[in-house]
Nucleic acid binder design. Sequence first.
DNA 1: TAATTTAAGTGACCACAGTATTTGACTTTG
DNA 2: CAAAGTCAAATACTGTGGTCACTTAAATTA
Lengths: 201, 201
Amino acid sequence: MPRMTTRKLKALETKKTLLETGLELFHKKGFDNVTVDEIAKKCNVSKGAFYVHFNTKYDIFNEKFKDIDNFYSTFQQGIPKNISASEKILMFYKAQMIYLRDELGKDLIRNVYMNAMSLTINKNHYLADPDRNLYKVINSFVQEGIENNEFKEELTTEEASVLITRCMRGTIYDWIIFGEEFDVVQEMTKFTSTILNGLKK
Amino acid sequence: MPRMTTRKLKALETKKTLLETGLELFHKKGFDNVTVDEIAKKCNVSKGAFYVHFNTKYDIFNEKFKDIDNFYSTFQQGIPKNISASEKILMFYKAQMIYLRDELGKDLIRNVYMNAMSLTINKNHYLADPDRNLYKVINSFVQEGIENNEFKEELTTEEASVLITRCMRGTIYDWIIFGEEFDVVQEMTKFTSTILNGLKK
DNA sequence: TAATTTAAGTGACCACAGTATTTGACTTTG
DNA sequence: CAAAGTCAAATACTGTGGTCACTTAAATTA
């Protein structure tokens, strides 16, 4: 943590205001109907200042999306010990989908998922970062499942974990491209239990 | 088929030229490095004319992408009769991934998949159109598998087909967001066989 | 064949994300 | 404390996808 000078504090304050105002406007009007100018103006700051703190308009949503890691940690503590690895994964995914749907919202997820695809991201997007908490959580469940003889050992822990998280991304992608009748919680459960079945002995 | 007047013929010729020139330039320089103006200019036509024939820049790639339906038809004819439904699906997917990778290319697929997510598509994108040949092909394989007692009947034919095509979209999404070392053919096989395992009795 | 309708094509224009350059207040250094 | 350096912020600008009002030539109708 660098020493906090007056200037740095003020900059941090600006960033925070931009972030909160951006989220609020996106929520109210939808991502595509909000301009960077509008966010800046509402913060009494220039557009240039926005780009001091964020690389793209998407970054507002990306930043918020990372909150999900906190969700993971708090969720993991409340999970029962006496259920199978599969059940843990299903519980975890179900809670996560409810969180995405009700807390973050489809508009945010759409934009995070779109942004992750864009070529102009030089480094890997957070979504594909193997150090994400998500991968650690799933990995530990899978490991447990293999140790308990619940899952077969055809695939490595890492390979199985990738497939399980791919289930999630695939379902979320479908949630975005299919119409309103798509029930992301139910579809996630259906898809993931089938994959887990395929991994079982 | 409407009667072909001189004018309609000329318009069709313009559209064809725009399409071919667009594809050529996208292939040569990458989608993001080609402007609509550039395509139009190379066809000796104004940018406005481009938008008479296409709704968005993406449409060039979308149109080409639809060629994949022809691929499906020709592929289906050469498939052996005496293998299981699962094997047919795996063969089909493998051939399709090779086609995507080597014929259409990742840049095209990225843009089709991105475009499908955008909110401004009023109707469903082609990718999510249930009348696509893809869904018919997979549906027939699944039906066969259920009739042969290869797959369990927990899920309806439609539900199982959706899951199987979701495997494909999920893998392609990962192909796009993960780095260069991602082997789309191998990953597709791994993911799909696990799902098929989960569907088997 | 003359009048009317249709639609392909034009080109100036707009909106808006992102960039390059400059400014000046704050911080660091000697 | 003064000079030098830094960096948040401002401003003007660019590039590009897409739009709109209009033109013009071909097609249709009378």
